[in-house]
């Protein structure tokens, strides 16, 4: 252990850089995933018979089913290798768009977006229908009702599930190591390959980074939940 602690310092800059890649990937993807989730969740909960919305609802349902029914690793392979092969004749290359990192953002956004859509749909549906009726009867439009009345209330029931999804997605970033993104897991493996005597300590040290992000996140969520009680 003493040997590990005295020698690990020389790898800290490498770990720190990799940690930042993981963190950046998670933050950027989750911002996009939240947007995707809100849009898909709203489409999914709308009861409109407008043909465009009917088609959109069908697309969203298929999208969610596909993402939920396939492993993330397979999704990475399809999007990183599959898409680039199919689109290569059209001059497409992930390298032109920012490389593996961008591919990672795309995969994680699509993946987490589908789960977020379901969380947001459930949250919206849990809000009392009377709230929508009251808002609409005052003359608020559908979007005003959603943004001012339904979503602010839904967020409270959704928050634990959203944070849970954030935590899952942060851990899922490690799967991007399989296609060579220099994030935490990949970097840990690279270091482990040259520093063979400390495999156990090294991987536990790497795990600590994930643990810290996820722990901080769940604390923040507890804090927010506590604050969102209105006059109770």
């Amino acid at each position: 252990m003493a040997d590990f602690l005295s020698n690990v310092t020389q790898y800290l800059p490498q770990f720190w850089a990799a940690f930042l890649v993981t963190l950046r990937l998670a933050i950027v993807s989750l911002i996009f995933a939240t947007i995707v989730g809100i849009i898909c969740g709203l489409i999914n909960t709308s009861k409109s018979k407008n043909p465009i919305l009917v088609i959109l609802r069908a697309i969203v349902k298929i999208y969610i089913e596909i993402i939920r029914g396939t492993p993330m690793l397979v999704q990475i392979l399809i999007i990183y290798f599959g898409i680039s092969q199919v689109l290569r004749p059209f001059g497409f290359s992930w390298n032109k768009l920012g490389g593996i990192f961008t591919a990672g953002v795309v995969v994680l956004t699509i993946n987490a977006g589908a789960y977020m859509a379901e969380i947001i749909r459930a949250g919206i549906e849990a809000v009392d229908k009377g709230q929508i009726e009251a808002a609409r009867s005052l003359g608020l439009s559908y979007f005003q009702t959603m943004s001012k009345i339904v979503l602010p209330q839904a967020i409270r029931t959704m928050l634990p599930s959203i944070v849970n999804q954030f935590i899952i997605s942060i851990k899922d970033t490690s799967l991007m190591s399989t296609v060579g993104l220099p994030e935490l897991t990949n970097t840990g493996k690279t270091i482990a390959a040259v520093w063979t005597s400390q495999t156990m300590n090294l991987y536990c040290f790497m795990a600590l980074y994930y643990l810290v992000i996820c722990f901080v996140l769940s604390r923040i969520s507890k804090f927010l939940e506590g604050r969102m009680t209105y006059g109770r």
């Binding site: 009377g130 808002a135 209105y230």
Partner: peptide
């Protein structure tokens, strides 16, 4: 409304 439907937030 019968059940008031005030906005709780």
């Amino acid at each position: 409304f019968q059940h008031f439907n005030l906005f709780p937030h």
